[in-house]
């Protein structure tokens, strides 16, 4: 065995990745995997998020993005600051009635397929802000895929939510090409 190959095998992470990729392509060749599954595999390992950050939860969002927790491990590497380039809308923080039209516009500007994570109790239910100003959960204005409880949620909860969303995308059966109605 060549030296560089041996080095590669000593590196555990590299072995896992190589093996995973090998298994994946072998199954592909055996036609055990449908096209839909392959597409779902690609989608769930390359979330491009749009962080709609309005309040204190943003701190925990940044912690999750940072090197200690690092959601890049789940392929959700790059936040995009244009909704046109994103497929995962992360609503992080309190949404007021004043902002509600903006949030809905951002959601509508995102191209299909798209998913929404509601980050923290404020976004999920209004939290303790039961008052004239606050939207009582963003699901009253846009559809939500995964809710994260906590005020703010710990980074582990955020990673759990990303994994739950990955599971959800794995089950999905939706048109592979945009359907023009």
């Amino acid at each position: 065995m060549a030296d560089n190959q041996a080095n590669l095998l000593q590196n555990e992470a590299a072995v896992t990745t190589v093996e995973a990729a090998e298994g994946f392509f072998r199954r592909l060749l055996n036609k055990n995997e449908t096209v839909q599954e392959v597409v779902n595999w690609g989608r769930r390992w390359s979330f491009f998020q749009y962080p709609f950050v309005t309040a204190c939860c943003g701190m925990e969002y940044m912690a999750t993005a940072g090197p200690r927790y690092d959601y890049a491990r789940f392929g959700a590497e790059l936040p995009r600051f244009s909704p046109r380039q994103a497929d995962l809308l992360m609503v992080v923080g309190t949404i007021t009635h004043k902002q509600a039209p903006i949030l809905r516009t951002v959601y509508e500007q995102m191209a299909e397929p798209k998913w929404v994570i509601s980050f923290g109790v404020c976004a999920s239910s209004g939290g303790f802000y039961r008052n004239y100003a606050t939207v009582q959960g963003i699901d009253t204005i846009i559809p939500v895929d995964v809710y994260i409880p906590g005020c703010p949620p710990r980074p582990e909860a955020v990673l759990d939510a990303i994994m739950m969303l990955q599971d959800k995308v794995k089950q999905e059966r939706r048109a592979l090409l945009p359907v023009v109605k």
């Binding site: 009635h97 039209p101 809905r104 009253t140």
Partner: peptide, 20 residues
């Protein structure tokens, strides 16, 4: 004297949802 449950949303809720 502002009603506690009085809401003045700028956009209506989705079907089946309520702003309260």
């Amino acid at each position: 004297d502002y009603e506690m449950e009085h809401r003045q949303p700028r956009i209506p809720p989705r079907p089946g949802q309520s702003h309260l």
